[in-house]
Amino acid sequence: MSAPLLDVKGLSVRIAGTSRDLVADVSFTLHPGETLCVVGESGCGKSLTALSLMGLLASPPLSVTGGEALFDGRDLLQMPLDQLQALRGDRMAMIFQEPMTSLNPALRVGDQIAESVQRHQGVSAKAARARALEMLRRVGIPAPESRLDAYPHNLSGGMRQRVMIAMALANDPALLLADEPTTALDVTIQAQILALMRDLQAQSGSAMILITHDLGVVAEMADKVAVMYAGRIVEFGTVAQIFEDPQHPYTIGLMSSMPTLGQRVARLVTIPGVVPQASQMPPGCRFASRCPFANASCAKTPDMTEVATGHRVACWQVPLEAGIDQRVSA
């Protein structure tokens, strides 16, 4: 297999003055053209993971406390600011969770896209504007010529997110970080935006980290899946491995809470309990307090074990079948 585009090892993020990691020891690799979906409940550290790769953590109070993230072989986490700035918006770009507030209200959307093109391609203002127009057209904004000079407040949420996508893809990034790009939008628009992102990705061949808590989106978009719980990756595998053979009790819980088609109205089967607060995170497995399989061994942080090629799980009880057999026979 080719060299990874992005190789993250042991990434940890912390609030200054505290000792608990909001993102703890996160590791994964991503190859060119691949889509990795990161799933997990609200607050589990998905956005912080993406923001630390971009060097955009709100610091203070947040800061990366450990790990490395090799992008094209260079560590994003140690990179001097000017080198990072040269990569941002060019080789890697991000789409944010909040389409309503992520565009500058005082600047025309065409200028906001063109600015990024000019910054990284060093082209004339006119060429940058032409590129902005082309991007608006590509993301399916109707009457793009007239939208170039629109302000964000003239556009709906869906249109703004399209503008964000146009901006992110304007310089053909090798890596696109998309943080719940459709969560804030209504369902029909969601489907359109996802289809659009898939098309554009297919055209440009860029890799994507797609953050979501919608398993339907995962099934549709992902090559690989990282399941996060309370700041850790608890399971990692291909989309087939995660959907057909989930190993971690949390992943299994997530899968059973996923509404099957035609059953949308049914109430979600949720996992009982809540994610522990960062301040009162238990030592050892962070899922133990909600886990039906937890026992004394869970007081220690579980190692990632490989259960199949590329399929890794952080749980002492895996494989669960063996554990259940033992308990039944005991």
Partner: peptide, 27 residues
């Protein structure tokens, strides 16, 4: 400076000077 659009400006790779003087100050 805390706003999402200032973060977007940084995500575009703009220099801090441009982020502050153009994107933040305007607002």
């Amino acid at each position: 400076l805390q706003s999402d659009y200032v973060r977007t400006a940084r995500a575009k790779g703009l220099s801090e000077k441009r982020v502050v003087m153009k994107h933040a100050l305007r607002n």
